[in-house]
Design a protein around this nucleic acid. Structure first.
Lengths: 320, 320
DNA sequence: CTGTTAGCGCGTTCAG
DNA sequence: CTGAACGCGCTAACAG
C-alpha cells in the first residue's frame, strides 16, 4: 500500500522498477493508447505501489499548461462572491484543475499585479469578479482564457447577473399584492451594475405600474441604508425595495425602531440572516452559485476549444 | 514601455538582447550579488523593456520549491477564517509567495484529498484551519512545513485562539460592573475548542466570582441560540455571554422580542453587524487577522530554517 | 565578475 | 508497441 518513500521518485525510477523505458511510463501517464495492455497494467501497478507522483512543475513546464486556474475576487469576505467561488471550485475540481484565489480589493492596480503573477505562473485561465470601475483591458493577456463575472464587457466572455430582472422580480412580488407605495434604497449610480441598472429597473417598473417613484441612493453599508430610510418613508409606504441585503438589513432595522411592522422590505442576495432577523422581509437570489458554475464551465470550454466570446446572464429567482 | 511580444521570451533571449550570458541574467533574477552594478542595470533594463517574465514552472522545477503555499479553510464563507486568510495573504504576498486556497468543509476526507493535491503541486507549505474532529496525522507529509490554526496539537506548529481568555475577558467586563447573574449560551462540548474550552472558562469564572452558573449548549446557529435563550433567562438575568457572535445574534433577537433591553449580550468575533443591529451588545475580538499573520510568519520561518515546532496563542481583545 | 556546461523531470519525436 | 535521444527554461557548479 502506497509506501512513503524518503526519496522523491522520478519517472525513470518507475521505468526501471517496471522494467520498461521511461517513455512507456510517460505514455501510461498521458493515457496514450499505444501501450500493450499488459505493459500498461504492470506500470500502473508499480506506480501505485511506489506512491510515485509525477512532478507537476515538470509537466507544466513541458506542456505549457499547469492545470491551474486563477480566481480574482474583489473581497474574500463578500458573501455573494463566496457563493460563486463555491460554484467555480466545484466545477474545476471535477475537471481536475486547481485554483489560486486572489483579492483585488476593488482596485485596478492590485488586479493588474495579480494578473501579472498569474501570468508568470502560467495558469491556464482566469475568472475575475468585476467591480465598479473595473478596467477590462487588464485581461488582454488572457484574451481567450478569461471569464469575468458581474460586469459589462465585450472583449472577454462574461457571466453577469440580471440586475434589471432581480429588481423587477421583487417589484412584481409587491405590485401583485396590489401595493402602490413602494420606495427604493440603492447605491450610487456611479456603480453601473449595482447602482445604475438596479435603480433604472425600479424606475421602469414604477413607470409601468403608475407608481410614484420614491428613492435614495448612498453607500453599500448598513448605516447608509439605515440613515436613508426616513427619507423614503411616509405614512402610506407599503414596502421598500433594496438593491442588496446589506441595505435591506439597515432599512429593516430602522423600520423596527419606528415600529413600522406594516412595511415589507426586500433585498438581493438570499442571505439567511436577513430572513432570520426580520420575518417581514424577502430576498431575491441572483443565483451566485450557479453563476460561478457557469463561469467555470464557460472557461473550461474556452480552454478546450477556441470557443468564441460568450455573454451569459444569470437568472434570478425567489428562494423557496 | 513593456511591449507585448507575441512569442514567449526565454532567459536566453534576454541574454542575447543584453549581450551577456544566460547565467548573468539568472543571477540578476535571483538577486545574486556577484554582478557588476552596470551589468545588472543593463539586464534589468532589457528585462523591463522586453516584458520578459521568467517561467515559474521552470524555476520551480529547478529549485524544487514553487513559492506557493496552500491554505485549507474549513469554509470559504466563514467570516472568522476570512479575516485570518486576509492576514495570511498579506504576509505571504509580501514574501513573494502565492496561495492556493481550498475548502475542507469540516471533513477529514476532503482534507486528505486536498493535501494530496497540494503535495503533487509540491507547494512549499500549508496552513490549515482546524475543525472539530480534525485528524492531524493528515499533515504528516508536511511535517515541518505546516501550521494549523485553531486546534490543539503537538505534532505540528500551531496558532490557536485563547478560548479561555476570550470568555474570561467577556465575563470580567460584566463582573466588573457588579453583575452577578450572567448566563451562557455555547455549543456542544464535543467540539473541544469552541464548545468545551469556552464553557469551561465560563464555569471557572462563575466559581471564582461566586456566580450561579446557568447555561445551555447547542448548535452553532442563530436558531439554536434563539431557541435556547429562554432556558437561561430569568427575571434577574443581567447578561448572557455567548460562545460566538452567531449565537449572540440569535440571543439578542430573542431578547428584543421579549423586550428585555436590560440584558446585555456578548459574543465572540467582533462582527460589525452585531453591534449595528443591537447596541446593547459587545463582542470579543479573538484576533483573527493577527492570528493569520502569525501563522504565515511562523510558516515562512519554518521554510527558511528548520525551525522547531512552536505553539502560539493569539490574545483576544475588546474592540475599541 | 562573467560565460560555459551540466543537468532538473518530463513529453515527444524517431528509429527500431 | 517500445526505448533512446533531445529539449523545455532555468539554476548551480565550474572555469575563465
Amino acid at each position: 500500500m502506497t509506501q512513503k518513500p524518503s526519496q522523491k521518485l522520478t519517472i525513470l525510477d518507475i521505468a526501471k522498477l517496471a522494467g520498461v523505458g521511461k517513455s512507456t511510463v510517460s505514455r501510461v501517464l498521458t493515457q496514450d493508447p499505444r501501450v500493450k495492455p499488459a505493459t500498461r497494467e504492470k506500470v500502473t501497478q508499480v506506480i501505485r505501489e511506489s506512491g510515485y507522483v509525477p512532478s507537476k512543475s515538470a509537466q507544466s513546464m513541458r506542456g505549457g499548461n499547469s492545470r491551474v486556474i486563477g480566481i480574482l475576487v474583489s473581497r474574500l469576505d463578500s458573501p455573494s462572491e463566496n457563493k460563486a467561488v463555491r460554484g467555480i471550485l466545484e466545477v474545476i475540481y471535477a475537471a481536475d484543475y486547481d485554483a489560486v484565489i486572489m483579492e483585488s480589493q476593488f482596485c485596478n492596480d492590485k488586479t493588474r499585479e495579480h494578473i501579472a503573477v498569474l501570468e508568470k505562473r502560467n495558469v491556464d485561465g482566469v475568472i475575475v469578479f468585476g467591480f465598479s470601475g473595473f478596467d477590462c483591458a487588464i485581461l488582454d493577456s488572457f484574451a481567450q482564457r478569461a471569464v469575468v463575472i458581474a460586469v459589462d464587457t465585450d472583449s472577454v466572455s462574461s457571466v453577469s447577473y440580471d440586475n434589471k430582472g432581480m429588481i423587477t422580480l421583487a417589484m412584481d412580488q409587491l405590485t401583485s399584492k396590489g401595493m402602490k407605495h413602494v420606495s427604493y434604497i440603492g447605491v450610487d449610480p456611479a456603480d453601473r451594475t449595482t447602482g445604475q441598472l438596479r435603480l433604472d429597473a425600479y424606475l421602469d417598473v414604477c413607470a409601468q405600474q403608475h407608481i410614484e417613484p420614491c428613492y435614495r441612493t448612498g453607500e453599500l453599508s448598513y448605516d447608509s441604508a439605515y440613515t436613508l430610510t426616513d427619507a423614503v418613508l411616509s405614512a402610506q409606504t407599503q414596502a421598500i425595495v433594496c438593491a442588496s441585503d446589506t441595505l435591506a438589513m439597515g432599512v429593516a432595522k430602522r423600520l423596527q425602531e419606528l415600529n413600522r411592522t406594516d412595511v415589507l422590505v426586500s433585498g438581493v442576495g438570499a442571505t439567511d440572516l436577513l430572513r432570520f432577523m426580520f420575518p417581514n422581509t424577502f430576498s431575491v437570489d441572483p443565483g451566485y452559485f450557479d453563476a460561478g458554475q457557469c463561469a467555470a464551465d464557460l472557461l473550461l470550454q474556452h480552454l478546450r476549444q477556441d470557443a468564441k466570446i460568450t455573454h451569459l446572464v444569470q437568472r434570478s429567482c425567489l428562494p423557496v
